[in-house]
């Protein structure tokens, strides 16, 4: 980038639990931005999927939450922080097909237990912290020079 200051763009979205009408709006906006900025298609796709799955996790499981994105030319940081039930056994939650989503949500086609495994699969760096009864924090980094 030479001697020019490295740019950063911050985005923040407030998410409401069970709001399936607006579900996907935040990640769609993130995808459009990354495309417009000229990130590589694979980077855009991975970031968009990670953002979408994180957004849906909050909407399906939590009361409310925030999706924060920090875009720099080198990397995309995605944070999803929620106030919700938390995850008792993170190792179990990371397994494909494991889900605590109620039937009603599964009937909508969500909660198939692929969210967290997919997030991890598409992320270059992945951190998860959770406290039962309080909430969950996901932190994902996508490196822009990969892919």
């Amino acid at each position: 980038m030479g001697d020019k200051a490295e740019q950063a763009i911050m985005l923040e979205f407030t998410l409401q639990g069970q709001d399936f009408i607006r579900a996907g709006e935040a990640s769609s906006e993130i995808k459009q931005r990354l495309k417009k900025l000229g990130f590589k298609p694979d980077v855009v796709r991975r970031a968009a999927i990670v953002a979408y799955e994180s957004e849906m996790n909050v909407i399906i499981h939590a009361r409310k939450g925030t999706l924060r994105v920090e875009i720099t030319p080198r990397k995309i940081l995605i944070q999803a922080l929620d106030e919700g039930p938390g995850i008792a056994d993170i190792e179990q939650a990371m397994q494909e097909g494991f889900s605590t989503a109620p039937d009603m949500i599964r009937e909508l086609g969500f909660g198939a237990g692929m969210g967290l495994p997919n997030i991890k699969r598409f992320a270059d760096e992945f951190k998860i912290q959770s406290r039962v009864g309080e909430g969950t924090l996901l932190e994902i980094i996508i490196h822009a020079d990969k892919g």
Partner: peptide, 18 residues
Amino acid sequence: RPMVYLDSNINGAMAKMT
């Protein structure tokens, strides 16, 4: 045949988007 929306350089594109 991707469109160049703002700038062919990401740093430049970010400055323009801001």
